[in-house]
Amino acid sequence: MSDCGDSDVLWIPYKERPEWSDVTPVPEDDGPNPVVVIAHSEKFEDVYDYFRAVLQSNEKSERVLHLTKDALELNPANYTVWQYRRDLLKHLNTDLRTELDYVEAVIKNSPKNYQVWHHRRVLVEWLQDPTMELELTGDALLQDPKNYHAWQHRQWAIKTFGLYEKELDFVDNLITDDVRNNSAWNQRYFVVNNNLGWSDLICQQEVCYTLEKINFVKNNESAWNYLRGLLIHDKRGLSGNAVITSFCEELYKNKCRSPFLLAFIIDVCEDAIKKKDTNCFHNADRAVELCQALATRYDKIRSKYWNYLCERYKKYQSEQLSNDNKTNDLIIDE
């Protein structure tokens, strides 16, 4: 990572380097009675003593650029060093392409560090060149397909520079690798939402895609959440899409009792109740029955939650009952 010494045998402290003899190191002043003291190595102290010195003298030179590299190798989370380095890059008119290579190497070693991704983003903004970003984040996601930092950088680059073209293929590959990769499902939503748009045709395509994935693994929250999410854009709502409701009933009939299936049918019932559009499959009775099944059998860890929802549907039941009675009364009155 750094060109001066992963091996401490070859390490020469700054205080022993003749080319630094003009600089007086500035030790850390942690007060008379410090707490949570980190017992830093001698190397750490040496490097940061010299970093403080150049910060104080505001020296902007190649040797300081090099010093920041050493300082960052010892602590890549030091945001002040990164910021000073950026000031140096500007001041020295450094070739930012080599800096891209450098930060790529640091990212490979510390892929979950906020500061390195921020540095990368600033460089890409300066260069206005995002050509490497999909590959860089793709590599990081190969290592860890749920790396939040990598996804954040990727979304930023895609959105800022309009790089949507091949993103759905990328997402599809990840979902094929692991259908439970929730980050990939989220990225699918991101692409459709920003690029393709939720036209009727796209909605329909996405419904088919998702149902196929659910058929493959039924107990997968990510796919069910995506299905519910894309229906936000369907004017007919949760209960109005016959393809989906009959798919669910088919699963149910075939003895599938995935908690996510049952929960989805409950949501369809709720939607139907609210729209006063209940039918023999989707009504308060069914919702009550499913909540009870979840609470007692299929999702016991959330039994309190399902019982709580059950109470809501019982209320609907009794409202429905009293409405029915009122209608009956009216008929009798007539």
């Binding site: 949570v36 980190i38 989370a77």
Partner: peptide
């Protein structure tokens, strides 16, 4: 122990020592 002294392996927490004090 954390309020007193920490090993050099925690050097990457150097700029966020206040949070270590907070957790402790």
């Amino acid at each position: 122990r954390f309020l007193n002294i920490l090993p050099s392996s925690l050097s990457s927490h150097d700029t966020t020592r206040v949070t270590i004090a907070y957790f402790s």
